[in-house]
Design a protein around this nucleic acid. Structure first.
Lengths: 334, 334
DNA sequence: ATGAAAGCGCTAACAC
DNA sequence: GTGTTAGCGCTTTCAT
């Protein structure tokens, strides 16, 4: 393997000069610089980044911790992170926790061992205390999620107002008996999506029947099962607000199986706007998170921390959009 | 930052002993070992992995190069890779080429600069010569794809026989006028999926009408558009074999819009068995690639190369399955 | 503008 | 079984 000293020898300069040509070309006389560059070229020299990293104590690598790689919701964010990272010459390591807290702890060691300069977390399950300690000592940002009452840099949408918007849409279409299939309430975002539902209902003087609120698991199957339960009621709802698109699809499947037409007999709104929402039949009306932007911003915030730039805000809230497609019907009715 | 020498000092041993406790505990007397472990614990020592890597000239990191992160087909493989990697204490770096060859070249530098120990490629677009050179000098495996005539370790299914199986299924359901919407023919897999179609047709003495073969782009939209084209024919096909599931979904959307019932008026088989295939209405009959296994195997082959184990085979072909769901109808008709 | 030289923190060959 | 020590290949301070 050709190393810097080989280049230095060939160019008749010191390794210091070669290093300077590589990192601060303007500080080297043009003549010398060209000589060195030629030597680099002739020898097809590739710097050993590991040695540089050891010396400079930085890795130019960040870690992205995902609860579940298979979940398409995260894809758009990862894409944004990756784009912003490579623009800044950073690499991204992928860590999958499979929803196991222990795996989270394992991944954190990468940070502590200086193997990555920072970390972006999708939903932190670890103890609050350890999370807080981690954030105090290392660059960390939380994305798509946030922790109540903890001052940790995070990027998300306003789940409450987004849900309110979704439910308001159903109400403005004339629905009054609206059910909500929530995500697991252990997630702050699930609670907030429920709150938005509640607010929209109360704001329109609609009573919330506790039977109409079902806690799902964010999976297609749970949407399907909870919908079956709702359909078994004496007065089933005429509209559903599902806390994510997969559950919304499960809801629609159940409804179809019972001979219901969506949107004519039942209106459904989802949440997330995953890529299949537009392909699904009927195409889902849903809340779109600006995922790519969220990824970019998360990465930028992380870089700010890594570079020691002072951080003003710690919570970044981006705008979401209600994407109206087919699953609620179009016209305002009464 | 607490380093190995601090631990050594506290435990009253040399750094060599500390290093041995960490890497080969059994070579150290129990008493000493415990002493060292206590010191490590007391100081909350975390080894600097960068220094280790520099010294040992290995990174325990591999690079996965994906043409497009957003494509769910790759997810299952990545999951398998990740699982096998972390089982072996390897980390995975994610590289997105966005289908740009230049980005591929950029990522290759990570390998050359010893920043990763090996690389798994999903479809290589770079020049054959450079790919070959790369493979000769570094651990590389190609997954889900293969390059005709190049001896590069690769993991894939037999696309020809898989497609034959899919088309044979349509034929056994009584169809004779079967169209194929292929992927871009620049991919070896697209060509092979076409070949399988051809073989099944010829084997059953069915003529291939060139109008019935349409080259798509592996996208939902292209499936939709090509289907519209097929439906405009004087004698439209009664069955479609689409080279991937997304196109199959596009096909079904177009058919539905024209008032056709799938599977009653039109049978459709897809390819890949992406996660939404079972959620789609009608649920897609499709060829399932053993993605998780492919990911695991790819990683294992890469590790073999990294560790210098001799490699017997270079092409690994795994079994695919025809998953029968709703989109072709169930019963054998004539 | 350039060079000499001291490390970054760890590992492993060699010596005892 | 443990210690000594010479690097891994680079960056950077200090001299010149």
């Amino acid at each position: 393997m050709v190393k810097m000293s080989d280049v230095a020898k060939l160019a008749n300069v010191s390794t210091a000069t070669v290093s300077r040509v590589l990192r601060f070309p303007e500080t080297v006389k043009e003549e010398t610089r060209l000589k060195v560059l030629k030597a680099i070229d002739d020898l097809e020299y590739q710097p050993n980044i590991l040695a540089r990293q050891l010396r400079r104590n930085e890795t130019n690598t960040i870690l992205v911790v995902v609860p579940n790689i298979m979940n398409t919701v995260f894809l758009g964010i990862i894409e944004g992170i990756e784009a912003e990272a490579s623009k800044n010459n950073y690499k991204v390591l992928l860590g999958n926790t499979n929803n196991e807290v222990d795996n989270e702890y394992g991944l954190i060691d990468l940070l502590k061992q200086k193997q990555t300069d920072g970390m972006i977390l999708f939903s932190a399950r670890m103890e609050r205390k350890r999370l807080l300690e981690l954030c105090e000592n290392h660059p960390v940002v939380l994305t798509m999620d946030y922790i109540d009452g903890l001052k940790i840099p995070s990027v998300s949408i306003d789940n409450i107002s987004s849900s309110r918007k979704a439910v308001q849409h159903l109400i403005s279409l004339g629905h009054t008996r609206i059910a909500h299939i929530s995500g697991p309430f252990k997630y702050a975002s699930s609670k907030d999506r429920y709150k938005g539902y509640e607010q929209a209902m109360l704001h329109n003087d609609l009573k919330i029947d506790s039977m109409l609120v079902q806690e799902g698991l964010f999976t297609f199957e749970s949407g399907y099962n909870k919908m079956l339960k709702l359909l078994a009621m004496e007065h089933p709802p005429t509209a559903i607000f599902a806390a994510n698109d997969e559950m919304a699809m499960g809801v629609i499947k159940a409804a179809k199986e019972r001979g219901l037409n969506v949107p004519n007999d039942l209106a459904v709104v989802g949440f997330d706007n995953i890529s299949f929402s537009s392909i699904f039949d009927p195409a889902l009306t849903t809340i779109a998170q600006p995922v790519y932007k969220m990824g970019e911003l998360s990465m930028r915030l992380l870089l700010d921390q890594i570079r020691g730039n002072s951080q003003m805000k710690s919570q970044y809230i981006l705008e979401s959009d209600l994407v109206i497609r087919e699953s609620c019907g179009g016209r305002e009715t009464s």
